[in-house]
Design a protein around this nucleic acid. Structure first.
Lengths: 410, 410
DNA sequence: AAAAGTATCGGTAACGTTTGCGGAGACGTT
DNA sequence: AACGTCTCCGCAAACGTTACCGATACTTTT
């Protein structure tokens, strides 16, 4: 405790009091003489009391700046309530949570005082001590289509019902943003994560971290096979098959496929469905009629240009999303290709605009709300479970919405 | 400290050891005889050591259940790094934050160890001690239209750039949900809130709380005048005026207005614009041609029915959002009313479907991304500011997108 | 050689909450 | 009298991090 200072100042005799006539008290022994300067620490003068061999720094009047900065608005805490009522923190905590071991009178008094002081619990402290945030995170690649917003609505319903919060982040179709999002989710200690991958994502290290930490992770829609987690998808193969079959049954022969990147299972499945349908009906599957890639609006235009300018032009195009399909329709109109007679078009997702455009876009409607429900219910189930690494896949069914773009007037 | 127990057990002599021949050690003095039963506490036997006058409960083998439950996956902390390196927590903290007062070697060692142990900082603890979460909250009423998703994208850009996270909640046009959302935001101690009100909201107590606590609150789009906070809006009056003026200049005479609830300033402003334009060009302003209310899809249909069935039917309708305008267009088509010849329609917001429907919907395009940018930049500015109660309003400008629904072929 | 300065690190009090355990009185039961 | 049970409440240790104070050991300046 009173460790003897064997440093170089041990034998000092000159004191500041006598030398410069300044009055500085040692903060320990309150002596005035025997105080010596002993360097600077962070811009402040450091002193050494010769008597008690104690180093200290002299802080100037801090009222001016420090107190002004520190004058943060005080949020009333449990301690405030406890103090003003003359009880302990634990009593207040128990009262607020309707715990046992508390008398009705005390409890009512606490509740009244809490309301009076406008107490708002601090979720941070709660989460820290319970290591549970009651928050589920959700990362979606985009907000442009109605698909993800609707999934969010569905998940939100279930989660709020269960007393959970939903924190949404969007990766904006960027792998890097997705990584930083997952890091932020980890840092914020969410209890579970619902994620739909970007079109760029082809490395999954940032996701396997969650399994290591025991945090439930559920993929939906844009899933990948490389990691063993629960997945919620729609029957992409079947939907795709039916869409192409529908085109074939409407007399289309040379059907092209505009697909997504093959890193995504969803793209693979839809491609499989396309091939299966073509095969079943003996239609030729030609590689140059199949395009897979990231379908930004620009890319969709480029691919569309290519397909529509082919020597042997396809008489139908099955696109993997509605925005690409619509882009195709607009290009066809520009080129004077009539829809559906000269070109049939089918999309995927049933965006709002698909019902309103030109002759109406035939498309596959996905059960967006139900996807949200399913993922949310599943993650809540896993939050309380012991084992979380499951590789189950839940498949929801879709509906083919037939509109004018594929109904040939033949 | 060694307070004498003056309770009723003070004079006990019978000891359990002799009586029942069970061996229970006092946890304090490790005596075996002199231990007496002293009631139950939460289902566990409580004992009293006669020698040291110490109460204690005997816990059974907890390995089976307790340890199993407690076997939570351990997240590596700063302390783990400190221990394994033989340094203090503060050193690790300084190293991780690139603070001064640390040698390059120590710092590198810490960083290496952190990477090796897969350390992820605990944002909860950080926020608790700093009382700053680096998170901005955003509450939007809906995700159905493209408007809010685009605002989110804009705000997201600015916030991530500044190292902030964005937590999004949606009130689903419900006042009650909005209240619970704001409570959750408060509990999570967000640093600032961006909010667009629901159509139901006409009480603002849940918002004035933020001012009391010194948390910056910014309203955008759906703002109200009743509280003094920063607001980001578009030039609704001017936009509305121009839209109606455009209808008038295209030869429409009896122009109806389908507006939102008047609790929202945005509705008031658009109504003002409508009136001003009608007045300027000497068109009659008739009360039965002006409808204000919550515009759900169902309501839009009811109001549309009413307007289109009027004895003296309006020859144009200026709707306050695109979805209502589109509903009107569809109803007109069902009734065989030709657009734009018999009925002109103008909407507001430029949803995606508006470009694709029928003859194309004339509408007012809002600078959604810019709204997001502006609100985000503003809230970041206020987070660091002293005074946050400002009543400034920033007005962004809109653009009238003229399409077929209002271009009379006359 | 005193004084001042620099560099690096540790100790520890917060931050706000929950919770296990102990203390003490009241009352009931052999 | 001896013991069991119940109720109500306080104490204090977590939870993980930051930052303010020191403390030590140097080097440089005066």
């Amino acid at each position: 405790m009173t460790k003897v200072n064997v440093g170089r100042f041990a034998g000092l005799t000159t004191c500041l009091f006598k030398k410069y006539n300044i009055m500085i008290h040692c903060v320990k022994c309150t002596q005035v003489d025997g105080i010596m300067k002993a360097g600077y620490v962070r811009g402040k003068q450091r002193y050494l009391c010769k008597w008690c061999n104690y180093y200290f720094t002299h802080t100037e009047k801090d009222d001016s700046i420090e107190s002004l900065v520190k004058r943060k608005r005080h949020q009333t805490t449990i301690i405030d309530i406890a103090k003003s009522l003359g009880v302990s923190n634990s009593t207040v905590s128990r009262a607020l949570h309707g715990h046992a071991d508390i008398s009705p009178e005390t409890r009512q008094a606490v509740l009244d005082k809490a309301a009076q002081l406008d107490y708002q619990p601090n979720q941070l402290a709660y989460s820290l001590v319970k290591s549970k945030t009651n928050t589920i995170g959700m990362i979606v690649p985009e907000f442009q289509n109605q698909f993800f917003p609707n999934v969010i609505i569905g998940a939100h319903e279930v989660l709020t019902q269960a007393g959970y919060n939903l924190t949404i982040m969007q990766s904006n179709e960027s792998y890097q943003v997705e990584i930083s999002n997952t890091k932020a989710m980890l840092a914020n200690r969410i209890d579970g994560l619902l994620i739909s991958l970007t079109q760029e994502t082809n490395n999954f290290d940032h996701l396997s971290v969650f399994a290591k930490r025991g945090i439930p992770l559920i993929q939906f829609n844009r899933v990948c096979d490389q990691i063993d987690v629960p997945k919620v998808v729609v029957n992409d193969f079947e939907a795709s098959f039916k869409a192409v079959e529908h085109l074939i049954l409407n007399g289309y022969e040379r059907i092209a496929h505009l697909g997504g990147p093959l890193t995504l299972q969803v793209s693979q499945e839809r491609l499989r469905g396309y091939r299966a349908a073509m095969e079943k009906y003996g239609k030729p599957i030609q590689d140059h009629m199949i395009i897979q890639g990231m379908l930004t609006q620009q890319k969709a235009r480029i691919y569309g240009q290519y397909l529509l300018d082919l020597a042997e032009r396809p008489d139908a195009i099955f696109a993997v999303n509605d925005s690409s399909a619509i882009e195709i329709m607009l290009m066809a109109q520009e080129k004077g290709i009539s829809i559906p007679n000269e070109l049939g078009v089918v999309g995927f997702s049933d965006n709002a605009e698909s019902a309103y455009i030109g002759p109406g876009l035939t498309t596959v409607r996905q059960p967006t709300l139900q996807i949200g429900h399913t993922t949310a219910e599943w993650v809540l189930q896993l939050v309380d479970a012991d084992e979380i690494i499951v590789n189950e896949k839940r498949v929801l069914s879709t509906e083919l919405i037939v509109r004018g773009s594929s109904r040939r007037c033949s």
